[in-house]
Amino acid sequence: MAEIPILRIGDCLLVSIQVDMHDRLALALQDDLTQRIVADRARGVMIDISALEIVDSFIGRMLNNIAAMSKVLDAVTVVVGMRPAVAITLVELGLGLTGVRTALNVDKGLALIRRIIDNPERDDADRER
């Protein structure tokens, strides 16, 4: 089974999903990432989904889980590159991805992670607003 590579940039981990995800691969990524956050002492996780043509409830749950697990491990997750058609479909499906931070692209995602790491109190205040 193909694995999804996890790249390290400074204190961040970058995952770019380039294959059509089947369910076992999604679960494997969830496990791998959690272990790498601890092993690499990562503070941020960026998941690029610009190549994904759909996000269904299973992949959505994986993204939610990764965000929740990384939060417990003191890392922040940002999902970047969602296609507009995917965003429209996700909302209609009823999946808000409420626990997941998003950014339009990798640049903005990295900036967002930096901002949250450097200023965690403000992030919490932002989210409550």
Binding site: E53, D56, S57, A85, I88, T89
Partner: peptide, 14 residues
Amino acid sequence: SLVDQTKIVTAASE
């Protein structure tokens, strides 16, 4: 359309 494709593919996946 791209949005209609995405909707039916997502529904099919579920």
